[in-house]
Every structure is written in C-alpha cells, then in structure tokens.
Nucleic acid binder design. Structure first.
Lengths: 342, 342
DNA sequence: CTGAAAGCGCTTACAG
DNA sequence: CTGAAAGCGCTTACAG
C-alpha cells in the first residue's frame, strides 16, 4: 500500500540471506553459478522482503535498457490518424514483443533542442518521416546509439528504409498518360511555413512530374493542389481541383486516404469516376480495394519495410551488423494496381 | 560516425575544463550557481568533446525517468484497432507532451511473470482494461510506483477511472423497454478460455440484464450472442442474432464498432433498422452519428476520463496527492443518445 | 562561486 | 560454488 516505505535493495537481501551481493545478483542473472540451496534461500528471502530489482541500476551496469525509441515527427495524436503509422506501430510492437523490448514513444518537434535526443534512455531509435532539413538530422549523426530511418530523406547518413516513391509515382503518371490524359492535378498536403514537405510526398511529386516531363508535356500540364486536412478535406480538395482554370481530367493523390476523400467528394458532387475525373492514389490501403469505384493506386508492402527496419535496428543494437553495411538506403519496390477509378 | 568510440563522460569534461565534476553538473542543472565565465567554458568544452549526459545515470541519481508506462492488456496491434484506445493514446500523448514526459508502451499478457512490471523503468503506470482476475493485480499493489487504472475492474486497490457502464447499459435497456421491446439480444465478444471478459463489457451486460429483470421479465428475455471479430464480424454477428430460436426485436451491443458492424450486416440482409431490428450501441464514437441510420447509443466523454487519469498519475508521481485520496473509483457519467436505429 | 565525497543500486571480471 | 572490489555516470547535500 504505502509507497513511501524505503526500497528494499539487493544489499538488504544479501544481508538477510547471509550471502554476498554477488550471490544475490547471480540468483537472478546466473542461477547455475549457485548451489541450489543458496539460490533458493536467496530467492525466498527476496520474496519475503518484497525485493524488486531496480531496472535503472541494472541498466546503468549492463548498458541495456531493453527499449527502443520510436521518434515521431509530430504529435502522437496526429500520427494516430495516419493508417500507415498505426500499422507500422503495430508491426514494430509485434517485433518488440518477440524480443521482449519496449517501445518508448517520443515526438520530435522541429523546435526541440537537439540534445533532447540524448536524454531519452533507449538502446536505439527508429524514426519515421524525417526530412533533410529537420533540425535533428545533425544530432542523429552524433548519436551514440543506432538509429534507423523509415520513409525519410534519402540523403541522411543513417540506415534508411524507404520505398520507391519516385518510381511508383512515375508509373502512376505513365498509366494515366497511356489512358490519354494530358492535364493533371496532384493533390497533396499544404507544406509547412518553411516550405518543407514530408520526404515521401516530395519524392512522389517529383516522380510524377518527371514522367509528365519525359512525355514531352509542359510543366503547366501538372497543377499542384494543396489541402489542409486529409480525411476530412475530401470535399474541399475536390472543389479546389474542379475549380482550376485548366480543369484536369486526372488527379494523382500523394496518399490513399487523400484519394478516397477526393473520390467521395467527387461522387457527392455527382461526378462519374473515372469518366469525369480519373483518380489514382498511393499506398494501397485495405480501404482502397473496397471503395466505389475501387481505387487505382500504387501498392507498397506495408509489412516488409517496418519489419526489415526493426530487425536491422535490433541487429545494430546487438552489434551483429555495423552501420557501414547499410550505407545506401534500402528501397522497397512499389507496384501499380489498376482498379476502376482510372 | 563510429559509435564504438568511448563515451565522453562528465568527468572527462571536468578534467578538460579544469573544474570539478560538480561544476559540470551545475552547468546543466543549476547554471546560476556558476559564474558566467566558468559555465561557458564548461559548456564549450562539453560541446567540443561531444559530451552527452547519460540519461540512465541521471535517472539513477535523481530517481526520475521522465517517462510513464502505458500497460496494454493485449498486443499493441490489437489495441490499435480499438478506436477508444487510439483516442486515449492520443490524449495521453498530448498530456505527456506538455509535461515533457515520454510514453513507454508495454503489453502485459496474462502469462507474463509479475516481476516483469518491476523491470520496466518508468515513474508510474497507466493501465487500461485490467480485470480482477488478471495475474498482475497483485503485483500492482506491491508496486513501488504509482499506478492509475482506466476502464478496469472496480474492485482493484488502485486509483481507478471508470465510466458508468452499468448505469449506461441500464438506461439503454429502459429505453428499449419503453419502445415496447420484450425480447433482446446482447451482442458481445467471445470470452476468453477462462471465461474472463473485459471489465467494461462485464458491467454493461450486468447493467442491461438488471434492467430487464427489474422490469419483471424472465432471464430468457435476454440472449447473449458472441462473436469473434469486432469490425469484420458484422455480417456473421447479425446472422447469429437473426437465427436465434426466439428472435429478438432489439439488440444491445457492448460497443459502437460492434453495433455498426451489425447494423451494416442487417442492412445488407435487407432488413429495416429499427423496424425489423432495433440496435443500440455503447460509446458514441464519431462514426455513430453518421451511419445510416444514425446509431442510438450511450454517450461517454472520450476526453475527460483519460485526461483526469493522466493528470492524477502526474500528481501521484509528484507526490502532490496520495493514493489514499483516491480510495474509491472515479466514475464518469454516461448519457443515452437516441438516434434513429431504435 | 567552487570542490571533495558519498550515494543512487546494480553487474561482473577476478581471485579463491 | 562464493565473496571483495571496482565500476556504470551522474547528482547533491555539505563545507568552504
């Protein structure tokens, strides 16, 4: 009940059991080093005294926290609305369960002091969506602990697991070109004040635009349309697209949630998709295949990337591999899935 | 780059700067205790050497980890599909942001050794949905750190924040009785092997059944219908209900997600809701108001409960209040929201 | 304003 | 099989 009572230490147990502190430690960490009798006597007195090993002291002595830090680029609240993030979190959770590691969630806002990273007690870090302009990128390099990046800038000096955003978007454009489209919108999120955009989104837009350029069309063939919300902003996003002076016949969305929002916006406005407006998403979320009409999109394997990343992090922590083995980013394939929205 | 280089310690900085370790510590933790010149010299050498304070050592010395443990009763993956949990997680995240605390996620499976709890380095714990039969309940009492419970058994000796599950369900039953219904189904999750059920669900079923009994109806007026999935199992759940020998005219669902699943199952089967089957949910998720027809449900404030719980935990950690101030569970009100599904 | 010293509670070679 | 001793890297009265 009372949490004020003094903590029982290993030393207390040793004294009561009439053994050395070493023996008590062995009872937990190297049981076979002790005679059965001694071990049991120790464990019994420990239980009797209500001894609980102090995890922090153990960590200081061993150098292991048995936790990894999951650094998220914005508030947790915001991240939890991103189906990709929650999926990744679930995958990472499963991997940590198996390894008996814990996940420490830490948002890293842009205005946070770089040394904050050093104050987080974990064996390593997994970081989601960090761009090359992020104030933390430098701190990352100086970190004494391994860091693995997911969906981040490909120019950062750290093991990185990305997907082929450029190639996927390029394929999406080719698909639409082949269907005869010549005037496009790209639906994306409103960039931050400083003009920075999620690295994945940046690459997708680049890839799409590149394909259009490679097809010999002028830059004006692609109009970028911003919107604030994601899920909620479907109606508004659609309107913004539909009211463009040069009205596009096809829209490429930087994510499936955005595409689904615009799809429903378009249908509420009485349009026929894809006849009036073709829509292509990115990500191939489960919802993408059950919308009406089902969404043409760029498929990515949602499992292999986070699994690979977390496994790599564990290997780095255990020093089974070294960072120099991972100099260039690992890039997972993407694949065009043609459904009925295009 | 190389993470193998020896760690720079506070002692190293002290030596290089020609001061005592105390002074270096002060430079970070009590800057005004140092002359400006000394402080700056220390900070400069620290930066030059690439010194990073060791968070674990600091924790051992101060007794503060600046993190709280969020103990989840099943796999993270499973929890992330529960909109209530993700919402709570977002709220808790926001509170932790403000206090500069981190969240450590730790699933506590039923088969886990009780001492595992002691091995998790946090300043306190927040625990979600723990039932009185949970093997951890005893370990919770012996914990040296504060623990706050959410949506848990009301018989556990720890500060608890629940909602009025019984009362809410009771009201739901009264509502249906008033509408003239006499034969009911209760749709709930399949209990575990050992018969244990989520505490909230248990209370909701009790409350509902109690109201039916108080109305003078026989126990046979309420038929419990189990289903495995939640979101996905709508169709199947509906079939199970519809195929009961004594077919109910109304179904009370222990959660909104379940209710929405059954609602869509019923409509796919060509039924009219509420004429053929009345449906009442529990929770009043955002989705409940936009289904067709909109769902009659029991409203709960999704924000106040987690906010109160986390604030209380912080107060316990800071010893601003004591556990004895929180002997009996805090119970938030619920409220019947009549929409068109009943 | 600054320093010497004890302490936080464990682990782990090392020696026997 | 068991113990004495040093060490993990910091903080914080205490004394000056």
């Amino acid at each position: 009940m009372s949490k004020k009572k003094k903590r029982v230490t290993l030393r207390d147990v040793a004294r009561c059991a009439g053994v050395s502190p070493t023996a008590v430690s062995f009872a937990y960490n190297a049981p076979h080093q002790l005679s059965r009798a001694t071990r049991e006597r120790i464990l019994d007195t420990a239980e009797e005294l209500g001894y609980q090993p102090h995890p922090v002291a153990r960590t200081l002595a061993t150098g292991r926290t048995n936790s990894i830090g999951l650094l998220v680029p914005t508030s947790l609240n915001w991240m939890l609305h991103d189906p990709l993030f929650t999926h990744f979190l679930g995958e990472i959770g499963a991997a940590c369960d198996r390894e008996e590691k814990r996940i420490l969630l830490a948002p890293v806002y842009r205005n946070m002091a770089p040394q904050t990273l050093a104050m987080i007690a974990t064996d390593g870090f997994l970081m989601f969506g960090i761009d090359r302009a992020h104030p933390l990128t430098e701190a990352l390099q100086h970190s004494l602990r391994p860091i693995v990046l997911l969906d981040s800038a490909d120019s950062i000096q750290a093991p990185t697991f990305n997907i082929d955003d450029r190639g996927g978007a390029y394929t999406a454009a080719q698909h639409l070109l082949k269907k005869g489209h010549r005037q496009f919108a790209v639906a994306t999120m409103t960039p931050r004040q400083d003009g920075v955009v999620t690295p994945t989104i940046e690459r997708r837009i680049e890839g799409f635009s590149q394909a259009i350029a490679d097809a010999g069309l002028p830059p004006s063939a692609v109009q970028i349309v911003h919107a604030r919300g994601v899920r909620s902003a479907g109606q508004q996003s659609f309107q913004n697209i539909w009211q463009l002076r040069r009205r596009p016949t096809a829209v490429f969305c930087v994510s499936d949630v955005r595409a689904l929002g615009i799809l429903s916006g378009a249908r509420k406005a009485g349009l026929s998709v894809p006849d009036d407006l073709a829509i292509v998403g990115f990500g191939d979320l489960p919802d993408a295949s059950v919308s009406s009409p089902p969404l043409t999109t760029i498929h990515r394997d949602m499992n292999s990337q986070p699994r690979l990343a977390i496994r790599t992090l564990f290997q780095l922590i255990n020093e089974q591999i070294s960072e120099t083995d991972l100099a260039s980013p690992h890039i997972s394939n993407t694949q065009l899935i043609v459904r009925e929205s295009s």
